[in-house]
């Protein structure tokens, strides 16, 4: 069952609210994975800080997210069993998975499912159930 192992980890992240134009033009630290949550909001994973893209931007170091790392096979199975929308071919998708708001990042070698820490226990239980 190693194929369907679920790795859960806390992530360092920075969330930024700014004008869409500023976010479009911004350059983020090289290590960051950028999730554009909304036209005026971005979540940068795996960084501790980032420069404000405009004077009124809110730059917020956010420890409230949890990442689940899955194999592509497990990720596919989670979507088949617990999501009513198809996973993106590559990159970010967001919507409900097993009834919980989630972000998915489809990388070539692994999938990340990112959820709010306040719902991570429930989410993990449901992942395990669907992968059983």
């Amino acid at each position: 069952m190693a194929e369907f192992a679920v790795v859960r980890e806390r992530i360092a992240a920075v969330r930024i609210a700014a004008t869409p134009t500023a976010l479009d033009a911004a350059r983020w630290p090289a290590d960051a994975t950028e999730l554009r949550l909304a036209p005026d909001e971005v979540l940068l994973l795996d960084v501790l800080d980032a420069a404000a893209p405009e004077p009124h931007a809110i730059v917020f170091p956010d420890t409230g997210w949890v990442r689940f790392v899955l194999s592509p096979a497990a990720g596919t199975r989670v979507f088949e069993g617990a999501a009513t929308w198809p996973p993106p071919a590559h990159g970010l998708g967001q919507g409900a998975i097993a009834g919980i708001p989630a972000k998915v990042i489809v990388n070539t070698d692994c999938w990340w499912l990112v959820v709010q820490g306040v719902l991570a226990d429930d989410f993990e239980d449901r992942l395990v159930e669907v992968l059983a």
């Binding site: 554009r36 009513t84 929308w85 998708g93 967001q94 919507g95």
Partner: peptide, 10 residues
């Protein structure tokens, strides 16, 4: 427009 088509439950 940002996320794609999703169920009304979302």
């Amino acid at each position: 427009p940002h996320c794609g088509p999703r169920s009304v439950e979302e």
